[in-house]
């Protein structure tokens, strides 16, 4: 395996470069996936049948907490990658750990939010609106859940193997994924919650 030392570790081999490009293309596909969900959401937004409308069930407090927590986690994973670039493995692991804890907190609040919807009678079966709402939020939440496991595995691998071209590459790609989920959340915050509450 040829290692090019003039490049950052995560870009240092041909395979690493291809992995990163491949993941960007995958994110392109993910954008289409969420774009389809958002489009469907806009179509179904007012088709509430006999169920509640968004304004009746959305609560600003949990949503704001979720937003701040997830945005902070995007900041901390940025710091983790920065620490990786300057070879501070320990700091990197700490920031990765904080990122995952914030992710878990986000998920906890989202689960609380879902039980709240259930109690006010907005379930998957209630109307087309509630179905697309829960599907869109759920798809994002499933991505975060998957990310928690993925990130945990990367932490374990860095602890065992140190910062190698492979682990650096995986960490960098994971950070792309995490930032992407944050971007999706910003869209959800703006076009689902804010639009729904206004």
């Amino acid at each position: 395996m040829k290692i090019d030392h003039s490049q950052p570790l995560e870009y240092s081999t041909e395979q690493n470069k291809m992995n990163i490009l491949g993941f960007w293309i995958f994110l392109g596909a993910e954008i289409m996936l969420f774009a389809t969900l958002f489009t469907s959401y806009f179509v179904y937004e007012d088709r509430i049948g006999s169920g509640p409308a968004g304004a009746e069930i959305f609560g600003i407090t949990p949503v704001l907490f979720e937003t701040f927590i997830l945005l902070t986690s995007s900041f901390t994973i940025g710091l983790a990658i920065h620490a990786m670039r300057i070879q501070r493995t320990k700091a990197m692991l700490v920031f990765l750990g904080i990122t995952l804890l914030l992710g878990a907190a986000f998920l906890g609040i989202e689960i609380y939010e879902f039980t709240h919807y259930y109690h006010v009678g907005a379930t998957l079966q209630t109307s087309a609106f509630t179905a697309i709402l829960l599907t869109t939020l759920g798809t994002h939440g499933a991505h975060v859940t998957f990310g928690l496991f993925w990130g945990l595995f990367i932490i374990l691998q860095i602890r065992k193997r140190g910062l190698t071209p492979e682990t650096a590459n995986k960490s960098f790609i994971f950070s792309l994924y995490w930032h992407f989920l944050d971007v999706v959340w910003i869209f959800i915050f703006s076009f689902v919650y804010l639009k729904g509450m206004m």
Binding site: S40, Y44, R47, I48, G49, S50, G51, L124, Q125, T126, S127, A128, F129, A131, I132, T135
Partner: peptide
């Protein structure tokens, strides 16, 4: 769910 049905939106 009611995505493609004719009831409940």
């Amino acid at each position: 769910t009611n995505f493609f049905t004719s009831v409940n939106g």
